[in-house]
Nucleic acid binder design. Structure first.
Lengths: 332, 332
DNA sequence: CTGTTAGCGCGTTCAC
DNA sequence: GTGAACGCGCTAACAG
C-alpha cells in the first residue's frame, strides 16, 4: 500500500475526488458544521488519511472571516516574569487549537506602531502585555470587532478588557509585611511612572502606610529593570540613610536593589534592611535572593484573559482584578 | 474633510473603484510588480490613503503561495537566554516585514508534535530552537520547500540548515580557562545528554583537558535548569570532594551550582572552587553571580539564521558555527 | 442530507 | 500600460 503521505498541498478538492463526493461535503466534514451521512463520512475519512489532508487555516479564515490566530503584543520579554506568561499563554492557546502571532513592541517600537500590523492580520483577538494602548488604537480594534485584552494593565479606554493582579491590594499587603517585620523607614522603588501596574502598587502601599501612621520616606520611579534597581537604590540610600525597608515594584528591580545593597554597600538583608518584591518570578526563588514577594496568579490571569478573548462581549468591557499572594522567603 | 479611516475591511476592489482603475492595477501597485503609469499610480495612492487601505497578508499568501509568516518553535522560553533570542529574532523579522508565529514545544509537547501545525500554515520558513527534529519531520519540510533553520543545535538531518555557537571550541576555552586559573580537579555539569549543545561542549572540554594532561574527574548530565544544577552539584561534591573547578553546560545550571555551593555547602567562589558557564545570559552579569562564561554571539547567530531562511538553498543545507567569546568575571 | 454556485481578497496570465 | 477573467483553498448560502 503506497503512502503518498505529503505531496505538495493536498486540498479538499483532492479529497472530494478520491471519495467521490463534492468538495462542499468535505468542507462540512472538516468544519463539523452541517450534515454528513455515515457512508459519505467514512469515504471522506478514508480519503483524508490516505492523502494526509490537512485544512489550510489561512484559506479557512479568508472565506469565513474567522481567524484562528491570536496576537500577543509584548515588550518586556527580557524581564523574566514575561517568559513564563508567554509560555503559559501559548500552551493554553495551542490546546484550544489557536495559534500565537507574536508582536514585539520594544521601545523604539511602541504598541501603537504594531497595531496596524496586527489589524492587517484580521486576528481572532489580541492580548497586550505592555503599556496601555492609545484610545484611537483601541478604537481601531473595536471597529473591526476584534476583542482586546490588556494583560497586567488596567485601563479606562473603552472597548477593551483588562485582566490584572489587584496591585493596590498587593501594595497594602506590602506595607503590612514591611511594617510588621519591624521596618520603620520605608521607601518605594517604582517602575515606569506611566504604567498602572507601578502606580497602583504605590497607591495601595501609601494608603496602608497611612493606616499604620507611617509615612513614605521616599519614592523613586524609573523602569522595571535590574540595572535601574541597582543604581536607584544607591542614590536613595545616600539621600536617606535611615531607610530600613523597601518595597520594589517588581522582582527585577528588587534583585538589582539587593545586589547593590549587599555587594556595593555592605548591607545585610533582612537585618539591616528589608526588601519586598512583586511578581514572584523565577529569580526570586533562587538561593542567592530568597526574595519575599507578592506572587501574581498567572494561571488564573491567563485563564481569565482567554475567556474574555473568546467569550467576552466587546460592548461590555470587563475589568478583572485578581488577588496576589504573599510568598514569604528570607528578605524581610 | 471626512476621514472614513477604518471601515470594516477595505479591499483592493474599493480602492480600484475610487481610483477608477481595475483591481489588477491596484494589485500591481501594492506588490510593486508590473507596470503602473504615473497618473494611475497617483490616483491609486490617493485612494489608498483616503480609504486607509492595507493589504490582507493572508489573502496575499493564499493566491501567491508565499506567506510572510515565519514559525519559531521554542521549548525553553523559561531559560533566560531564550527570551533575549526571541526578542532579537522578532525584532529582526518585523523589520523585514515578516511576522512571527510562535509554537511552544514544552515537554509534553515535542517538536514533532507541532510540526503538522506549522506545516498547515504554509509558513515562509521555520526556526527551531529546541531539540533536533526527527528526520521524517525534517523531510516534511523539505518536500514542501519550506526552509528550516536549527538554532543553537547542530544536526546531521538532511535538508535543514543549522546555526550554532562553536560549542566544541567553547569547551576547549573552558578547559584552558579553568586550568589556567589553577583548578586541578575539574568536572562537567551537563544539560540534556541528547542535545548536541551539551555533548559538543563536553567533547571540546575533554579534548583540551587531555592537552593539559588532566582528566575529567566526573561528568553528570541532566537538564538545563537552575534546580538541576543546584541538586547535581551536591551529589557531585559528595562523591568527589576534591573538585575545585566546574564547567557548566549553561549559565542556568551554573547559577544553581553556585547557589548550592555557597549557601548549602559554605564554599567560596572562586577561592575554593571555580565555576564557568555558557551563554552569558542576563543573570550571569548580576552582582550576586558575576559568572565567568562563554558568550554566544546571539546577534550574529540570528543574522545568519535569517539569512539562511530567506536566501539559503534547501538543496544545500548549511551548517554555521560561530565562535563564542570568553567573558571574564569573578567566578574563576 | 447532498451538490451547485457564489464569493472571501488577492496575484496572475493574456488579450486589448 | 491596462483590464477582464480565472484560480488559490475554503465557507456559506442555495436548491434539490
Amino acid at each position: 500500500m503506497t503512502t503518498p503521505l505529503s505531496h505538495p498541498t493536498v486540498t479538499q478538492k483532492d479529497v472530494a475526488k478520491l471519495a467521490r463526493v463534492s468538495q462542499a461535503a468535505v468542507s462540512r466534514w472538516t468544519s463539523g458544521r452541517g450534515y454528513v451521512a455515515a457512508d459519505v463520512r467514512e469515504r471522506i475519512e478514508k480519503a483524508v488519511s490516505e492523502l494526509g489532508y490537512a485544512p489550510h487555516p489561512l484559506a479557512q479564515g479568508l472565506s469565513s472571516g474567522q481567524s484562528d490566530i491570536v496576537a500577543i503584543v509584548m515588550a518586556n520579554i527580557t524581564n523574566p516574569w514575561y517568559p513564563v506568561v508567554l509560555e503559559r499563554i501559548t500552551q493554553a492557546l495551542q490546546a484550544l487549537q489557536l495559534q500565537v502571532l507574536l508582536f514585539n513592541a520594544t521601545p523604539p517600537q511602541s504598541v501603537d506602531d504594531v497595531v496596524p500590523d496586527v489589524l492587517r492580520y484580521r486576528v481572532r483577538g489580541a492580548i497586550i502585555t505592555t503599556a496601555a494602548l492609545s484610545s484611537t488604537a483601541a478604537q481601531q480594534f473595536v471597529e473591526r470587532g476584534i476583542p482586546v485584552v490588556l494583560f497586567n494593565r488596567t485601563t479606562r479606554t473603552g472597548g477593551v478588557h483588562s485582566v490584572s493582579c489587584d496591585n493596590t491590594d498587593g501594595g497594602r499587603t506590602a506595607a503590612d509585611t514591611l511594617i510588621k517585620s519591624g521596618a520603620r523607614h520605608v521607601a518605594f522603588l517604582g517602575g515606569s511612572s506611566e504604567s498602572s501596574t507601578s502606580t497602583d502598587r504605590l497607591r495601595g502601599f501609601t494608603q496602608q502606610l497611612h493606616e499604620w501612621d507611617r509615612t513614605l520616606v521616599a519614592t523613586v520611579e524609573g523602569e522595571f529593570t535590574y540595572e535601574w534597581g541597582f543604581q536607584a537604590i544607591q542614590k536613595l540610600m545616600e539621600a536617606h540613610p535611615e531607610i530600613d525597608g523597601i518595597f520594589c515594584a517588581d522582582d527585577e528591580i528588587a534583585s538589582g536593589a539587593m545586589d547593590a545593597l549587599r555587594y556595593n554597600m555592605g548591607k545585610r538583608i533582612p537585618e539591616d534592611i528589608r526588601i519586598l518584591g512583586f511578581d514572584d518570578h523565577p529569580i526570586a526563588a533562587k538561593a542567592a535572593y530568597q526574595l519575599t514577594t507578592i506572587r501574581q496568579p498567572v494561571e488564573d490571569m491567563i485563564q481569565q484573559s482567554i475567556d474574555l478573548l473568546l467569550h467576552g462581549e466587546i460592548a461590555k468591557p470587563s475589568t478583572q482584578l485578581l488577588k496576589g499572594q504573599l510568598i514569604v522567603r528570607g528578605s524581610v
